[in-house]
Amino acid sequence: MSQIWFITGASSGFGLDLALLALDAGHKVIGTVRSTSKASDAVSAIKSKGAEVVELDVTKADTIADVVEKANAFYGGIDILVNNAGYSLLGAVEDMKDEEAQLQMETNFFGPLRLIRGFLPTLRSRSSTGTTIVNVSSIAAQSPYPSCGLYSASKYALEGLSEALAQEIAPFNITTLIVEPGAFRTNFLSAVQKTETPLSEPYRGGPVEHLLGMFDSAQGKQRGDPGKAVKRVFEVVTGTGEAGGLKGKVLRLPLGPDCVGRIEGAMKKLQSDWDETREVAMGTDFD
């Protein structure tokens, strides 16, 4: 069954690959880019396959309503909202300015929140055949690294929102899916932003500087195949293919062996903390 996808960040990476995959499968796609002129190659690639393209900067709150209205006008609504647009701010938390932190949250959290609110009436009206909200998070939400404090916080917030949202909209036959990629060979690392403030002296030679160096050297060497990743997302959303049996059964979709390993490590740490503190936690009621 052909469905209508609204995919943010369709200019590159997962967004572009997912848009092309959905179009090749016979679906309709509305892709967003921040600038059609700067993303002309991507725009041409998806428009040549029949996609509609809308300019959208998710940090500009006053434009969201118009974009939602324009998107709904193309095909009478959408069936799948994919909140994919985002970026990573790297550096020591102490070195991050308020403006940098605010922009990180505006892009990775408040942008998706506004689009969810804007499209929910449409998704609800079309939910007789099943509609879906896909929020692209990151393994960094479950397993934060030094240097990724604000990025992890923005994705952790998105996941918390998604968990509550999933319960609120399940009665309307709307499914929520959190996608948690590990490291995939996209342009993600080349597009990261580092703090305007150079790494301050106390953090030099420590874990923050070490991780920043690792990220610099990892670009173009990531093991993850983005084509395989978006195929898994497509299958879970549409209930087709190898991963189709997971449709409606899982809230989270981890992607990549590195993601699985880090999540399993985070789960062990959580269980360890739980085991150590359970007795203390249980003794806090009134006598």
Results as ranks from 00 to 15, higher is better:
126 R>C: 08
7 I>Y: 12
147 S>H: 00
200 S>M: 07
89 L>V: 10
285 D>N: 11
30 I>E: 09
78 I>R: 13
89 L>F: 10
205 G>P: 04
139 I>F: 03
60 K>L: 03
9 G>E: 08
16 L>H: 06
149 G>E: 09
2 S>Y: 06
18 L>H: 11
156 Y>E: 08
11 S>T: 08
19 A>H: 13
180 E>V: 14
247 K>A: 13
271 Q>R: 14
270 L>K: 15
38 K>M: 00
184 F>P: 08
97 K>N: 08
12 S>D: 12
238 T>Q: 15
51 A>L: 13
121 P>C: 07
236 V>A: 07
189 L>S: 07
47 K>M: 04
66 D>W: 05
49 K>R: 15
222 Q>D: 01
155 K>F: 10
127 S>R: 06
157 A>P: 08
210 H>R: 08
197 T>R: 14
185 R>S: 11
124 R>S: 07
213 G>I: 04
31 G>I: 05
184 F>V: 00
176 T>R: 00
52 E>N: 11
222 Q>I: 04
145 Y>E: 12
64 I>E: 01
249 K>W: 05
188 F>A: 13
195 T>G: 15
216 D>N: 12
114 R>H: 04
176 T>M: 13
142 Q>H: 12
36 T>K: 09
256 G>V: 06
188 F>C: 03
154 S>R: 09
109 F>T: 14
4 I>W: 00
124 R>F: 02
202 P>G: 04
205 G>I: 06
77 G>W: 09
24 D>I: 04
48 S>N: 11
25 A>W: 06
48 S>Y: 03
285 D>P: 13
60 K>P: 02
